[in-house]
């Protein structure tokens, strides 16, 4: 278990590094795909079966797919940056230091209070996914629709607002005309054009 964890940890960090260092955007996407996949395996190892599956379906299956769609359309045939990125600004050095210190605090906190795996915590260890088992589909759904219903629904509402906002921002600002009336307008214009052409 420990060996598997460390192997996964190395793979996770390596794929994440690949995502930010890769020169071509599509390589970054492939790295991110690998990263999500390893992350799902990590969730499986922590007995969070449902979370693992959702990680794959939502992030790998839908969101990353949209990245591919956009990147394939926008950057096809574009050469990677030959000049290389800009030089690091001066502020980078202290910022790195601060982040390192904060991460050190986090690591210290984690090492003082080790993460407890599900079956060591007194939660039933058994066939993963059955009811009454930590991380199972049944328990996850139960928790989502009883204790955490309000935050869940609020999240859905916020996403809905975001979608409407995107449509408002991206859509053309022509007042709405019902299709049938628009069709009548087009038809009338065409008829007048034909009549004009006949007169000439």
């Amino acid at each position: 278990m420990t060996i598997a964890f460390w192997a996964l940890a190395v793979l996770l960090v390596a794929s994440a590094m690949f995502v930010i260092t890769a020169k071509k955007p599509v390589h970054s996407v492939a790295g991110l795909l690998a990263h999500f996949f390893f992350l799902a395996i990590t969730y499986f190892m922590l007995s969070a079966e449902f979370l693992a599956v959702i990680q794959l379906i939502v992030y790998s299956g839908a969101i990353l797919m949209l990245f591919v769609f956009v990147i394939a359309l926008l950057s096809s045939g574009v050469a990677p940056f030959s000049v290389g990125p800009d030089r690091l600004p001066k502020i980078a050095a202290p910022a790195t230091l601060i982040v390192a210190v904060l991460l050190g605090f986090v690591a210290y906190g984690i090492s003082r209070e080790p993460i407890v795996l599900a079956n060591e915590h007194g939660v039933a260890a058994g066939p993963v996914g059955a009811a009454g088992v930590f991380g199972s589909v049944a328990d996850f759904g139960h928790a989502l629709f009883t204790t955490n219903l309000l935050p869940f629904e609020i999240t859905a509402f916020i996403l809905m607002v975001a979608v409407i906002g995107v449509i408002l921002l991206a859509g053309d600002h022509v007042p709405y005309v019902p299709t049938r009336r628009r069709a009548r307008i087009v038809e009338r214009d065409m008829r007048e054009a034909i009549v004009r052409a006949g007169e000439e």
């Binding site: 379906i57 299956g61 797919m65 591919v68 045939g77 993963v128 996914g129």
Partner: peptide
């Protein structure tokens, strides 16, 4: 015999699309 069987299938097949879309893009 996975208890989340059908979800696992959906998850795996949703990754399968990458073969087609990345392959098509990478052909240049």
């Amino acid at each position: 015999d996975v208890n989340a069987g059908i979800l696992v299938i959906l998850a795996i097949t949703s990754i399968g699309v990458y073969g087609i879309s990345l392959g098509g893009w990478a052909s240049g």
